[in-house]
Design a protein around this nucleic acid. Structure first.
Lengths: 140, 140
DNA sequence: CGGCATCCGATCAGATACTG
DNA sequence: CAGTATCTGATCGGATGCCG
């Protein structure tokens, strides 16, 4: 951060690019397609690797590993290895990871509530774009 | 206070995969690297194309156009064309777009508040991976 | 069981040039 | 000024095979 901002006063709702970049950075991480699902799946408690893979469904082993690594790197989940045979690895949310659930669920609530509006807007946008006034200009 | 920590608060915050998919879908859209910056930049009011480009900074025309198209398609922003010379195009948030700001800013607040913790976790993760300290060879 | 390495197609994203 | 189109490199992401 650079001190000496003579631009604005202590208005906390100012959205400087620097602040937006922070949001963008975090969203680039947790806004990832799979990260959010992993965090939500870990709500109930620790889960094993293949357990997560099965619960989420549709995620490949590669992506799950990659996602868990990213979350572990950011301190959102912990990775506990039990060196038995067969080996057992448990993933669990940290306090930081659990604190993320509140804003994420708020966003999820917004998504769930406004999903019909978004779908309607999409259909209208595509419809207007595809069928202006010509009788037979139906393109995909 | 609560004798049992595994209570569900009797609320409906169950995280079924179907619900999580909805969150994932929305985050795939607004969790985009640039979409969130555009929405935040449009907070103060309507902006022109190059005005947005200059305010955001670091975004190419291609990405800004693509992002604005996506937001317009989802009904989050409106595109108003004034057929003058030179042409003038204004982008403005819709009611749906403005309603998105609350949860996004909540997430932004979380990001801003926990950024030090995340950066520290990243440094520790990378440091442990690259330079194991002497005395505590507790790797693996 | 958990995880890594590799190959390979699909998509993303920047730079550039051109049009109305 | 506000786009569109194209080329190109980078990244994403799945499938497979191997190892501890």
């Amino acid at each position: 951060m650079e001190p000496g901002h003579s631009d604005d006063t202590a208005a906390d709702h100012v959205h400087r690019p620097s602040d937006c970049r922070v949001v963008g950075t975090v969203l680039a991480r947790i806004g990832d397609k799979w990260s959010i699902l992993v965090v939500m799946t870990l709500t109930d408690g620790p889960r094993r690797f293949n357990e997560l893979k099965r619960l989420i469904g549709g995620i490949s082993q590669r992506m799950l590993t990659f996602t868990l690594r990213g979350l572990e790197r950011d301190g959102l989940v912990t990775r506990t290895v039990t060196p038995t045979i067969p080996p057992r690895v448990d993933y669990e949310l940290t306090a930081l990871g659990r604190s993320l659930q509140a804003p994420v669920q708020a966003l999820g609530a917004w998504a769930f509530a406004n999903l019909p509006a978004i779908q309607h807007a999409r259909a209208r946008f595509d419809g207007v774009d595809a069928a202006p006034e010509t009788g037979e200009a139906q393109v995909q």
